[in-house]
């Protein structure tokens, strides 16, 4: 049975085109599927990710298929495709917007959630979370903590206020939402 996999497209919508058009991606509607993006993609050279196919799926509005696919997260945002696209499609920016939609729909990679937690808790995506980093700074004749949110707790609070204000905490399940989840589970 595993050889029989119907892959017919039976439903086409304007959902994504509409969502993206609001963000100024009209060019995508005129994509000519030339393959410059895939041909330029360093990620596509080592994975099954096909930028051109992704753009086509956006045109056809295959929303669920795009947003649930982890290949959406294979792009290293090198912008080569965007620079070379003969139709001026902001390919990388389209991918970023698609990722925003994916996160809204609850598709997020585990390590990325961890990153959000660090961001919320410290103001840094890569924080000083071990003694050795302080020591390394001191070894290089720098204060053990940098003059960032690390040195200024009130700045850390500012970040948290902003992340609450934009509901980033709710979106990614960090801060109060992490605690809530913890309480529910216990």
């Amino acid at each position: 049975m595993e050889n029989i996999k119907p892959e017919k497209i039976t439903y086409v919508s304007d959902d994504l085109t509409r969502l993206l058009r609001d963000a100024g991606y009209l060019e995508l509607c005129a994509c000519i599927q030339c393959g410059t993006c895939t041909g330029s993609c360093p990620s596509g050279r080592r994975t099954a990710s096909r930028t051109r196919s992704l753009m086509k799926k956006v045109q056809l509005g295959l929303k669920e298929e795009i947003l649930s696919d982890k290949e959406l997260w294979f792009c290293s945002t090198c912008y080569t495709c965007l620079e070379r696209c003969p139709r001026g499609v902001p390919v990388t920016d389209v991918i970023i917007s698609l990722r925003n939609l994916a996160v809204k729909e609850g598709y997020m990679q585990e390590p990325h959630i961890a990153l959000c937690k660090m961001f919320y808790n410290t103001g840094h995506g890569v924080p000083i979370n071990e003694e050795k980093w302080k020591k390394l700074r001191e070894y290089h004749k720098l204060n053990e903590l940098p003059p960032t949110t690390h040195q200024y707790p009130e700045a850390e609070k500012e970040i948290q206020t902003l992340l609450k204000s934009t509901e980033f905490d709710k979106l990614t399940g960090v801060g109060d939402y992490e605690k809530k989840k913890g309480e529910e589970e216990s």
Binding site: W73, P147, Q151
Partner: peptide, 16 residues
């Protein structure tokens, strides 16, 4: 003083 993560263009921009 008190600066934070930029925030990173690939990840945080990709989230929201």
């Amino acid at each position: 003083k008190g600066a934070s993560c930029c925030p990173a263009p690939g990840v945080f921009r990709g989230f929201d």
